[in-house]
Amino acid sequence: MAVPSPSAPAVRTEGLGKRFGPTEAVVDLSLTVPPGEVFGFLGPNGAGKSTTIRLLLGLLRPTTGSAWVFDAPAGEVARAHRRLAYVPADVSLWPSLTGRECLDLLAGVGPGTDLAYRDQLLERFALDPDRRARTYSSGNRQKVALVAAFATRAPLLVLDEPTSGLDPLMEREFRACIAEAAERGQTVFLSSHQLAEVELACSRVGIIREGRLVEVTGLAELRRLRRAEVVADLSTPAPELQRLAALPGVSDLRWPTPVRLELSLTGPPGPVLRALADADVAHLEMREPSLEEIFLDYYGQGPA
């Protein structure tokens, strides 16, 4: 396998854009991901994440700009794909082959596979490799693709919404595999619409909305996006709870009725819960808003 230049970024785009008729799916996207980084590509569904990845993989021709995988132009598909392994959001396998046969086929066309590590991954992901692919659930098809990718020696792993269909136990194994890939010096480009997934796995994050890269940031900055919506129904009015507005992390305190309060909270919930403990709370609810709600709140209604 050709060894990429050590000075070349693992992923680089300059002014990358893709238009489908009147629709701009990706707009003037410039991004650099250095070798060895676990990089999160975060955005709500429909933001342009998968289109960007297809441009990187050479599966789509850009309308504007350019992309490179290490020092290989993305359009030189054979050369670029010798340096990467890819897991799509919706995995399709050869239905008449067993899982093991699918893995062997993928190993034969990829940049090299550690077979002993692959056997470990089969156990860790609780995947029966001797069943026909047509019998696999979507989650098991996802596992086949993840095992094939993580067992490879590709210097770049491109993962597009890779945990769809996985249960929480398998998501934990997935994060462990990300950490192991990073320890080996592999670059991971992880696309997701799940803030928590990116926050747990990545060291730096690019945020895309409506096809535009609106921010590239570290985890400390990313955490400012995380917030919870708190709703408390009271048995009787509690005017003293107006003081919640002065607590750390509390914003947008609202009183739709005298016995219902709503607020937004960033950071630990302890101070708010202690204040509410002194009131006659009949019902308490906390939820995390969707990523789209967070983006609308943080970046506003229009394009960035």
Rank of each mutant, 00 (worst) to 15 (best):
M1A: 15
S7R: 14
V11R: 02
G15Y: 01
L16W: 08
G17V: 00
E24W: 15
A25S: 13
V27R: 15
D28V: 01
P34W: 01
G36E: 04
V38S: 07
G48F: 11
S50T: 15
R54V: 05
L56S: 11
L59R: 06
R61W: 04
P62N: 10
T63F: 06
A67D: 07
F70Q: 04
P73H: 10
G75V: 03
V77M: 00
V77R: 15
P88K: 03
W94T: 05
S96C: 00
E101R: 03
D104C: 00
L106N: 02
L106E: 01
T113V: 15
D114H: 06
Y117N: 00
F125K: 02
A133L: 05
Y136A: 09
Y136E: 09
Q142E: 11
Q142H: 09
V147Y: 08
A151E: 04
S164A: 14
S164N: 14
P168K: 03
E171N: 04
R172N: 12
R172V: 12
E173H: 13
E173R: 00
F174K: 07
I178L: 15
A179D: 15
A179G: 13
T187Y: 10
Q194D: 12
A196S: 15
S203C: 06
V205L: 13
G206C: 06
R209Y: 09
R212T: 14
G218K: 10
L219C: 01
A220P: 03
E221H: 10
R223N: 00
L225E: 05
S235M: 05
P239E: 11
L241F: 01
A245N: 02
P248G: 05
V250N: 08
D252R: 14
L253T: 07
W255I: 07
P256V: 01
P256E: 08
V259S: 08
R260L: 05
S264Y: 01
P269A: 07
L273D: 07
L276W: 13
A277R: 14
V281W: 13
L291T: 03
L296D: 03
L296Y: 07
